[in-house]
Write a protein that binds this DNA or RNA. Structure first.
Length: 574
DNA sequence: GCCGTTTTCGGCCCGACTGTTTTCAGTCG
């Protein structure tokens, strides 16, 4: 059983949790967490690096000791430190840390004084009133634990970006209308365009002492107020979405926006940078001693630490700070760069609108071409097209193109990639099309080797243009299928075909890390709506957000090309 | 336990809110 980076990272996290409960040196604990993060985000398996004889201490946050532990885990599947720590504290104790409000100190007290080892025992102890008797705990804490366990058991899930956007829009409008309110900005992972968000972070500028907080916590959609102070409040909406509000005075807006946008790792890196320059960065500004030298807007904060402004989508401490320092930040692709869309359906299969409706909606968004790519016959639930129906649709598109102005419809298909890697329609039919979008819609659980071979073989087909939703994941519903994405990307490069970034809010697939991989390997990515109705083109903005998180620039994106250039790129040489 | 544009030793991001205290520890973001 090969050890993956995620396995090693999980062990390091558990070590950190256990050390924390034991009250170990906090910086030693942080070292384990930093190393866990490095490993979790490492594009190559540590196991492979070791096989190649590479020096792991060159990785950030990994020194001689942790490199040796990585090696131990890879070679033996065990970590002797963790084994020892697990003997000292019962296995389930770390799960208690997942309960909001419980940190290492309280978990330690609960275990030592009440022998609480599991979430269930915690619940019983709280219900029986045994917790309030502990020193440092009280009635209120006990009640909070009880409620937190109940919420934990009922599973807090993350919200898809597009869903969170609905709440964000109405909340923003509500706050904007309050007297004394200046700017209202949604910060946090929402602003960084993460595919899902755990909560909404709202930043509001207002004069001190204004009534914003009271009005916010009294907002009609609020189900519960978690905390409320003079400048900060947290509520849970009836939908279950948590919203944090922070009120600052206008001069601190930029610094607060940086702080509240995150990511946490990015903020830490920025503050560390400031520290080296003898400065201090907090949510109120950039300070030299007690003198405030920047903070009105974000640009001034970054300038204060010697950097150009960094787009929110890049703020993950994944190399953006180094890139900024060296003047090689990407000029990220924008929605207005898109010239067309290469994946859409009509009512001929599982879409809702006509060819003409779809064409006009795409044109209204400023697009100059749209590929119609219906499902193929294998996908019977979507009334996939057989050769005859596809031929008829092609004729209809030819006729319609004579009438349409300002937009051109391209003839395509979203053809099923069958289990053996063959395509679901005959060659002569596919040959008549402008492009062939291949997709996996079945047999998601093949082995990594078989799934990868299946896709590589499909790409070998002379008419194959574009791999749709390459990972197959559905957010919060279905894990990606197991494939070797680097091999797929390299094969695409070799075969002259492309990868889709499917902008549907439930997919957002290519993943951001794979966008970066494609860019490094020189494979263009097509940001497609996968529209099933004329309204779905609006989802392109989420695809662009994801592309930006993957560092993609205009030239890295296939459908930023004008139609003539696009045609040259997608015309396959046999 | 890691790391080095003052350093191989002595640092390691910063502040708000809550609850239990009566000046602060714990937790969170």
């Amino acid at each position: 059983m090969p050890v993956h980076n995620a396995d090693i990272a999980a062990r390091f996290e558990e070590i950190a949790d256990r050390l924390e409960i034991q009250g170990a040196n906090p910086f030693r604990i942080r070292a384990y967490r930093n190393a866990a993060r490095t490993l979790a985000e490492l594009p190559q398996e540590a196991r492979v690096l070791l096989e190649k004889g590479e020096d792991l201490t060159r990785l950030p946050g990994i020194g001689a000791d942790l490199a040796a532990k990585v090696r131990e885990i890879v070679e033996t599947g065990h970590c002797s430190l963790l084994d020892r720590l697990r003997r000292e504290l019962p296995p389930a104790v770390t799960e208690l840390l997942q309960i909001p409000g419980l940190g290492p100190k309280r978990v330690k007290a609960l275990y030592h004084d009440l022998d609480v080892q599991t979430v269930e025992q915690l619940y019983r102890a709280a219900r029986d009133g045994r917790i309030r008797a502990l020193p440092g705990f009280g009635d209120k804490t006990e009640l909070n634990i009880l409620q937190a366990v109940e919420a934990h058991v009922s599973q807090t899930h993350r919200f898809k970006l597009a869903v969170a956007a609905q709440y964000a829009d109405t909340l923003t409008a509500f706050l904007q209308a309050l007297p004394g309110v200046g700017q209202v900005t949604v910060a946090g992972s929402f602003r960084r365009m993460r595919e899902t968000v755990g909560d909404l972070d709202l930043l509001v500028t207002a004069q001190a002492g204004s009534a914003v907080m009271q009005r916010f916590t009294a907002y009609d959609e609020v189900a519960e107020v978690l905390s409320a102070g003079g400048t900060r409040a947290s509520v849970v909406l009836k939908s279950g979405l948590q919203v944090d509000l922070r009120v600052v005075e206008p001069p601190s807006y930029g610094a607060a926006l940086c702080y509240f946008t995150g990511s946490k790792a990015h903020n830490i890196a920025i503050r560390r940078l400031a520290q080296k320059r003898g400065l201090k960065v907090n949510e109120y500004g950039v300070f030299r001693g007690s003198e405030r030298i920047a903070g009105d807007d974000e640009t001034s904060v970054y300038a204060g630490v010697g950097l150009p402004w960094i787009p929110p989508e890049l703020r993950e401490d994944r190399g953006e700070i180094e890139a900024a320092r060296e003047g090689r930040l990407p000029r990220l692709v924008e929605l207005s760069d898109l010239r067309g869309d290469l994946h859409a359906h009509t009512r001929a299969t599982d879409g809702h609108d006509s060819l003409r409706d779809m064409a006009e909606a795409a044109r209204a968004l400023g697009l100059s071409y749209l590929a119609i790519t219906e499902h193929s016959r294998h996908l019977t639930v979507a009334h996939g097209l057989d050769p005859l129906r596809l031929t008829r649709q092609c004729d209809e598109i030819d006729r319609l193109n004579l009438e349409l102005e300002g937009i051109v419809l391209l003839k395509g298909i979203e053809v099923d990639i069958l289990e053996d890697g063959s395509l679901d329609l005959p060659d002569d039919v596919l040959g008549r099309l402008d492009l062939v979008v291949g997709a996996v819609h079945s047999r998601f659980h093949l082995t990594r080797a078989k799934q990868t071979e299946r896709i590589l073989r499909a790409m070998d087909h002379p008419h194959f243009t574009l791999l749709a939703h390459p990972s197959g994941r559905l957010l919060e519903q279905r894990e990606p299928y197991d494939v070797d994405m680097l091999r797929i990307i390299r094969h695409a490069r070799q075969r002259g075909c492309f990868l889709e970034l499917n902008a549907h809010p439930e997919r957002l697939d290519l993943l951001d890390s794979h966008c970066q991989m494609a860019k490094e390997e020189g494979v263009l990515v097509s940001i497609n709506s996968d529209a099933h109705s004329r309204y779905d083109f609006a989802n392109l903005r989420y695809g662009v957000g994801q592309a930006r998180r993957g560092w993609l620039e205009k030239d890295d994106v296939l459908n930023t090309r004008p139609l003539a250039a696009l045609r040259r790129l997608i015309r396959r040489t046999m």
